[in-house]
Each structure stands twice: as structure tokens, then as C-alpha cells.
Design a protein around this nucleic acid. Structure first.
Length: 574
RNA sequence: GAUUCAGUAGCUCAGCUGGUAGAGCACAUCCCUUUUAAGGAUGGGGUCCUGGGUUCGAAUCCCAGCUGAAUCACCA
């Protein structure tokens, strides 16, 4: 009997796998299985009086078994949900051979196995819609036990709640925790809903480069990589703005892209290194139009998803119905602090910040100071959807100056639940102004701002050919999903949030041990005892301790191996 | 990056002021003709995250580390 590192349950399942094979049943058959209905359709549409569903074929995971003599109940889970199976021995084994029921179903099948069944739908005495099974086949064996989560009247028992487990093994989370698959369907539906709106307006869905020689369109630290053939650095995009505007130059009236962006910054409950944004650019529009359009989009998303516009998010009720409140940034600061900062110079602003205990430092210019004021004193208070308009020009190098005030820009953000959700501009299309703004950014960068934008001369060249007046808007899809599904962490709306890599212990091959003079039969023992590398054996100082450990293990587990002498063990170590 | 909390069976968790490692579910064996989170009985299963220290004795106390979470800081 070989020692093993598999748990008892895993060993049993592997044994069952072999038993199935011995019985001539392929635990991983290749042939397609002709499913003709989902569990959800059956539950929704079954009508006893019509006796519809007289012949159904369904497949999924076996999630529970309740065996009562020659009849059993089981639960089958497919993508749409669960349905109860009624399995009677003499129904699935009409002849003399009762192995399929007695051995395969009762003994060799486990929770998590994929099976397929054929039968008819009926209602049990307890009133539950069930499938009376006539035929049962094994579709795929599961050899790793699934945590068992139970649900009764909407109450969940023994849910797997450990975030590390849920995020690292999302496939398990999806199988066992009710609602998780549904949540990610909602995410998809949000995107579909937006796409419908854009397409119905005739805007074109496009794709632009993820690998960019100049990471533009936002202020953020990029990931950097290297292209071997060109032998140049390439950056993973931090935004798709500049490429989409090039397409407006090229003559499209409306373009949009659902894009993964990458930022090499901190990770927390609202930041993942890769995240999804949607950016849209529409020619001949301005930011006023875009505010209307954004409202329309958000309202539609809420309605399509929930059939209503008033949603609970955390402790708040949020009304997503149009129209949303609109305030200028300076107006909002005035409203929430009582201080009118319009016309103030840098020194005055700095004093205001000090007065209000807003932390500032020497590198901050006028725009940054106003931004800090807003972020500290206003943003958190804006729970209901609110457009904040007219940001200082220093903060918005890609945005057109305000038509009435050259210190401001025609920019708005949509703030919901105290957090920014959308960002939009009347896009800057003056190539000379654009180049100057880039040069301003370069100065910031020389001052040590590692998030200042790079100069993209090709983009300036594109603007020189002429770009029509255009309005653009970007929205974080992950954050939108969090809002719309009432999730508090970005990790909960990403299938595979970024995690520190799992530490896997290095394990040496048995050859390495035998090369060091250790007999093959002791290798697995050593590894089970935690000496997974030959170095870890060599690192030991006292052969006596190891000798005792392995002899003890041999005795305890009745392996029947001939114990080595202490001298032998000492040779392994030396 | 700072502070706090957590890590015990496949899963959810208990384990007090240090004294033989526990429950439920899951698993195994047996009994049972239709159950509803779970029919009954019996049983197996543990690197108490890792490494040090204190102690006659550590899951428990101390130190360091690993992993995760929360709060804060930073951050288009």
C-alpha cells in the first residue's frame, strides 16, 4: 500500500473511477449528449393537466443523493438551476442486472459528477416538480469533492464565504454558491444593454490596440512589456481615448469600444490592475448632449436589468431615473463648503484648503488644489446621480476649454454613491492647443509627476488634419456593475480578480532522491513528511530525528517497509 | 505603505484563565418503498498556516514570517 497525499475522499473517488472503468463504463465519454430542455424551462412551463414534458433529456451535475432502498431522489444542477430526479431501481434497470442502480448510482456516483438523464416530468407527493428517470448515463466523473452548500426557503446553509477560496477557485464558487452565476449574467446583460443603445444610434463598435508604443488618454502608471522583433518597449493601454478620436478624424460619426485597460497601481476593493471601460465618441456633439445621452444610457441599463430605476446600493436607495442633478464643480464646492472659490489664485486656494483641513503639498497647482477640495469636501456627499461640470483646465489636458471661461473645461463626471462613474468631455480638437497641453504635462512629468501624460505626436498630427467637434464619454464597467448589482468589491464582479500567486511548494522528482542514495520506497514517505526537495533532506543536521520520523510513519501506517538503519539515514543526509 | 482582525477535518465553525483535538454537513459500512437543509445506527478522517521562543506541557501565551480581509493612506 503506497502512502499518498490525497485526502480520503479523493482516494475513494479515484477508486470509484477505476470501478466504473472495470464495469465497462467510460467515466469521460466522448459522445455528445442530446439535451433538449433546461431545468428552468421545466419548472416554469410544466403543466400537470397537459402532461407536457413527457420526454425530457437533461444533463448537469449531481448535487445531492437521498437513497431510500430501491428508490432514490437526487438533485441535478444545470446552468439554469436545479431539478429533482426520481430514480427507481427497476425503472433504470428493467432487466435482471441491477448494477446500474445498486453499484453505479448508489456507490460510484458522487456529488459533483456530471450525469445525463432521460425521463418524464411529474410532481411528487410533496409537490415538487421532478423528473422520473428512465435512463441514466455518466457524462464526467468528479474526483475532487465539492463543498456542499444547502439552501432552504432562500436561506443558505454552509455557504463558502472565504474570499480567497471564492476568488482563487471561482469555478467552485460558481458551481456551489447560489446567485454567483446569476450575478455574472447581469454583468453581461449590462454590457448588452449599452451596446443595444449605441447600435440603435448607428454607432460603430470598434477595437483598438492594447499594446501601445505611447500609453495615452489618461494619467496613470502603465504596465510595460517588450516586443522582441521590433525590439521596442510597448505599454499595455491605460485608456483607448486617443485611438478612438483618431477614428473620428477618419470619418466615423460615432465609435465605441468595450476595452480592458491596465494600470500598474494599487489594488483594493475598487481597483484591479486590469479593468473594463467603455468609451464612446460622437461627432458634432458637445458635453451637454453627452449628459443627456449618459442619463439615457444609465436609466436604460437599470430598467433592462431590474425593470425599475430605484435600486438599493449598500445603505442607500438610489434613483436612476432621468434627469440627474447638474452642478458645476465650483458651484458644488460652494454648496458644500460655503466658500466661493471662483477667481481665486493658487495662494488663495491653498489657504482655503488649509482652513478646511484639506491636505495639500507644494507640488499641487491650481487645478489639483480644486480637485482635492472637491474630493475631500463634496464627492462623498453625492449619493444620487449627479453631474459635476466644468473642471479646471490643468486637470483635463484632452478636454476643450469652456466656451465661456478659459480657466475651465467642458468636462463632466457623473458621481453616484459618492464615487465617480463616468467622465466625459467636449473633446479638444484644436491641434495647437493640444500640443501645448501635452507640453504642460511634460513639465509636470519633469517635476516628478510619474502619472503625467506622454506626448503623442501622431495623435497631434491626426488632429492637424481636422477632427469635428466631438463629445466623448468613458464609464467603468466594473464599477457600474457593482452599483447595479449592489456589490461592494470589484473582486465580486470580476470572474478572476488579480491575486497574489498561490505558493506552490517545489517538489523534487523521485530520481533526485534515488541519485542521493535514498531507496525509492522511502521517497514518498519523505515527501509526505514534508521533505519535498532533496535539499530539505540534506539540510537536516540530526539523522536520528529523521530516522525516527520515517520509522514511526512506517509503523503507524503499516506500510511494511524494512526500516533503514540510522547509519543509512545518516548517509542520505551527508 | 500603516493599523486591526483572521487562518483548526473536504466545507461551515466551536475549542475559556495553557493539560489527551470537537460538532454539523460531506465521506464509508449497515438498515430503510417517495425524501425536502438531514430517515436511522456505526465508523474513518487533522502539518490546529509556517518557523522560532516561553513552559514539565502550546491550537491556546510571545516574536518573526506567509496568505487573506477590514479601515486608513496613495491612486484616473
Amino acid at each position: 500500500m503506497a502512502p499518498t497525499q490525497l485526502s480520503e475522499q479523493e482516494q475513494i473517488r479515484r477508486k470509484s473511477l477505476e470501478e466504473l472503468r472495470k464495469m465497462g463504463i467510460d467515466p469521460y465519454p466522448a459522445a455528445m449528449f442530446p439535451v433538449n430542455v433546461s431545468s428552468k424551462e421545466i419548472k416554469e412551463e410544466f403543466d400537470e393537466s397537459k402532461n407536457n414534458f413527457g420526454s425530457v433529456v437533461v444533463a448537469g451535475r449531481l448535487m445531492s443523493q437521498r437513497i431510500m432502498g430501491k428508490a432514490s431522489f437526487a438533485e441535478l444542477q444545470d446552468e439554469s438551476g436545479r431539478i429533482q430526479l426520481y430514480i427507481a431501481r427497476d425503472e433504470i434497470c428493467p432487466g435482471d442486472d441491477k448494477e446500474l442502480y445498486n453499484t453505479v448510482f448508489k456507490k460510484l456516483l458522487d456529488i459533483g459528477d456530471f450525469i445525463g438523464v432521460k425521463g418524464f416530468v411529474f410532481r411528487t407527493q410533496m409537490g415538487e416538480i421532478s423528473i422520473h428517470v428512465k435512463e441514466l448515463v455518466v457524462l464526467a466523473k468528479s474526483i475532487r469533492p465539492l463543498p456542499v452548500v444547502k439552501e432552504k426557503d432562500g436561506k443558505v446553509y454552509d455557504a463558502v464565504t472565504d474570499p480567497e477560496f471564492r476568488y482563487r477557485q471561482r469555478y467552485v464558487d460558481l458551481v456551489i454558491n447560489p446567485g454567483v452565476r446569476e450575478l455574472f449574467k447581469k454583468r453581461s446583460q449590462i454590457i448588452t444593454s449599452m451596446r443595444e443603445l449605441f447600435n440603435s444610434n448607428g454607432y460603430l463598435e470598434v477595437e483598438t490596440p492594447i499594446l501601445q508604443p505611447i500609453p495615452g488618454g489618461a494619467a496613470a502608471r502603465p504596465f510595460i512589456t517588450h516586443h522582441n522583433t521590433l525590439d521596442i518597449p510597448l505599454y499595455l493601454r491605460i485608456a483607448n481615448e486617443l485611438y478612438l478620436k483618431r477614428l473620428i478624424v477618419g470619418g466615423y460619426d460615432g465609435v465605441y469600444e468595450f476595452a480592458k485597460d491596465f494600470r500598474n497601481e494599487g489594488m483594493d476593493r475598487t481597483h484591479n490592475p486590469e479593468f473594463t471601460v467603455m468609451e464612446i465618441y460622437v461627432a458634432y456633439k458637445d458635453y451637454n448632449w453627452m449628459m443627456d445621452f449618459t442619463e439615457q444610457m444609465i436609466e436604460k441599463v437599470a430598467l433592462d436589468l431590474h425593470g425599475k430605476t430605484k435600486l438599493t446600493v449598500g445603505a442607500n436607495e438610489i434613483e436612476f431615473a432621468r434627469p440627474y442633478k447638474r452642478m458645476t464643480m465650483i458651484g458644488a464646492i460652494k454648496e458644500y463648503t460655503g466658500i466661493d472659490i471662483s477667481g481665486m489664485d493658487e495662494g488663495q486656494l491653498r489657504n482655503v484648503c488649509k482652513e478646511l483641513n484639506v491636505e495639500v503639498d507644494e507640488t499641487m497647482g491650481k487645478g489639483k488644489l480644486i480637485d482635492e477640495l472637491f474630493g475631500e469636501k463634496v464627492e462623498d456627499s453625492l449619493i444620487q446621480p449627479t453631474f459635476i461640470m466644468d473642471y479646471p483646465v490643468e486637470m483635463s489636458p484632452l478636454c476643450k476649454k469652456h466656451r465661456n471661461n478659459p480657466e475651465l473645461t467642458e468636462r463632466f463626471e457623473l458621481i453616484v454613491n459618492g464615487k465617480e462613474l463616468c467622465n466625459a468631455y467636449s473633446e479638444l480638437n484644436d491641434p495647437i492647443d493640444q500640443l501645448e497641453r501635452f507640453q504642460e504635462q511634460l513639465k509636470l512629468s519633469e517635476k516628478g509627476d510619474d502619472e503625467a501624460m506622454f506626448i503623442d505626436l501622431d495623435f497631434v498630427r491626426a488632429l492637424e488634419y481636422g477632427m469635428p467637434p466631438t463629445s466623448g464619454m468613458g464609464i467603468g464597467i466594473d464599477r457600474l456593475t457593482m452599483l447595479m448589482t449592489n456589490q461592494s468589491g470589484i473582486q465580486d464582479v470580476l470572474f478572476f480578480p488579480q491575486m497574489r500567486p498561490e505558493k506552490r511548494e517545489k517538489t523534487d522528482s523521485p530520481e533526485k532522491y534515488t541519485e542521493a542514495g535514498i531507496p525509492i520506497e522511502w521517497v514518498e514517505v519523505l515527501q509526505v513528511l514534508g521533505y519535498k526537495t532533496i535539499e530539505s533532506v540534506k539540510a537536516l543536521e540530526k539523522p536520528g530525528k529523521l530516522h525516527q520520523e520515517i520509522c514511526g510513519y512506517n509503523k503507524k501506517n503499516a506500510l511494511g517497509l524494512q526500516n533503514p538503519s540510522q547509519e543509512d539515514v545518516a548517509k542520505w543526509i551527508s
